[in-house]
Design a protein around this nucleic acid. Structure first.
Lengths: 164, 164
DNA sequence: CTAATTGCTCAACCTAACTTTAGATCAAGC
DNA sequence: GCTTGATCTAAAGTTAGGTTGAGCAATTAG
């Protein structure tokens, strides 16, 4: 099968609703890998429509572009992904999704405990324990509790006197 | 009851784990409202510990600072919030939380349909309908499908020919 | 064949949520 | 009184995920 003529970035933009600039940006992030035609313009495979759609959907669920890229690595390298390939990817994706939802639910239940005990600011509150790593650590340098770069050398004193 | 001497920003930082700079930033965003002592330094109420803790927790759940501020408006203005005030706030917060989780679950279930049908890139896929507004529209100008500022004048043609 | 689209690159700008840096001031211990 | 550590302000920098604009080349429609 000869490599198709490929579709333009404008076509993908129109079909997905993504801005042309966004698709170019995704290329810089390794989410799609178009080739170039004789004139230097990007040509995409039709299958990239599906790829971009997956990106959009995964974003809706709150995954970052690097995370999404790692999902996409589950697709075959040389050939166009089949329906089965996509089904497998989706199943795998769903597991991450379930994990994310489960984390949120677990945190919510912990919060319920806190509503009862009114501890909302105490260091021993479950919500302070950084074991819920999956929770939204999105954009930029915002260190969640226990997530800070270096602060590990400060737990000697401060023996939890509970006058909050 | 005389207004207490108040606590320093460093104290809050140590107790909450937040960086001093973050607490100052929160002040600019209206999340805490310290007064100043004679020397011009910030003085906080002890109750702000709880306030900041709430901010941290709500952030963990993925809420933005403006959203969190609107939650905090549920607290009484003049006086220090009582345990009952916090319980009420928490209950209200939980509703938003449940809504967020429910949205994610609904989207996941829609995705399940898509896994089966393999439609992942079609415009008629349920995941394309922007009725799931609660879904993570976090940081910066990233317009999710149907969420764009103006793109409403383009649905005349493009009659959904399904060769994706 | 020409005009209108579309696409290209590169650099600058944008938002959210902060951090970092610089230079100056405040508060506390000895 | 002096030194050390905590704070102060203001401005600039950072990251993610893009958008906008300028100036120019390639495609496509008529």
């Amino acid at each position: 099968m000869a490599r198709s003529a490929g579709v333009s970035i404008g076509y993908l933009s129109e079909r997905t609703g993504l801005a042309v600039s966004a698709i170019r940006y995704y290329e810089t992030q390794g989410l799609v890998e178009p080739w170039r035609n004789a004139g230097g313009q990007r040509r995409f495979e039709r299958a990239d429509l599906r790829r971009l759609s997956f990106v959009m959907i995964a974003q809706k669920f709150g995954f970052s572009l690097p995370e999404i890229q790692s999902f996409l690595k589950g697709l075959p390298g040389g050939r166009t992904p089949t329906k089965a390939d996509w089904a497998q990817l989706s199943a795998q994706f769903r597991e991450h999704l379930d994990a994310r939802i489960a984390t949120l639910e677990r945190m919510r239940d912990n919060l319920d405990g806190c509503i009862g005990c009114g501890c909302l600011s105490l260091p021993n509150c479950k919500l302070y324990n950084p074991d819920d790593e999956a929770a939204q650590k999105g954009q930029g340098p915002r260190y969640l509790m226990g997530d800070a770069p270096d602060r590990s050398a400060d737990d000697g004193n401060r023996a939890s006197n509970d006058e909050n």
